[in-house]
């Protein structure tokens, strides 16, 4: 499953970058995130509860930041194990463009796969669920950084055929 999207955020690039690297912010913004602990400068341990179609599972897994080009871009990649429900793994290339008006344009490109029961029973719902989750994350993220602003999206997440 592949997905791309773009958000305009009402905060300067440095601030957005700091937030993208702050486990507390990420934890608050990731839908269903119960725990996010920083285990090194670039790695986290996460526990996330998700429901996809008929399958509800708690995923635990490792998240890693790579290709770091502060404060312009990184790739966040991770793999979550949902026990008997299966697993999910994916990577998002995230880039921040300074708009010069104290706003920042965040763009992302996600490639994700699921396996096990999630794939077997929930695959037809994965794309829409992922789209919804991505939207929710960036809504939260935006709200966190510019609490007073209306969410301003230039481009809603777009699904691409896998």
């Amino acid at each position: 499953m592949d997905m791309t999207g773009e958000y305009r955020i009402g905060a300067p690039r440095a601030e957005v970058w700091a937030a993208l690297n702050d486990p507390e912010v990420l934890k608050a913004c990731i839908p269903g995130c119960e725990e996010l602990e920083k285990t090194s400068e670039t790695t986290f341990e996460a526990k996330v509860v998700q429901k996809i179609g008929p399958v509800k599972a708690k995923f635990s897994g490792a998240v890693e930041l790579v290709n770091i080009e502060a404060p312009a871009s990184y790739t966040i990649q991770g793999e979550g194990n949902g026990g008997v429900a299966g697993f999910a793994k994916g990577a998002a290339d995230v880039a921040l463009a300074d708009n010069g008006d104290a706003t920042t344009t965040l763009s992302y490109q996600v490639h994700a796969t699921v396996g096990g029961k999630l794939a077997r029973l929930g695959s037809r719902l994965i794309d829409s669920t992922a789209k919804k989750l991505a939207g929710k994350f960036f809504d939260n993220f935006h709200a966190h950084l510019s609490p007073d602003a209306e969410v301003e999206t230039e481009d809603q997440p777009q699904e691409q055929p896998a």
């Binding site: 796969t113 699921v114 396996g115 096990g116 029961k117 794939a119 077997r120 029973l121 695959s123 037809r124 896998a162």
Partner: peptide, 14 residues
């Protein structure tokens, strides 16, 4: 099956 060999027709819903 998807490209990774995941079976994605695992019920009468699919």
């Amino acid at each position: 099956y998807d490209d990774d060999g995941q079976l994605i027709t695992g019920s009468y819903m699919d």
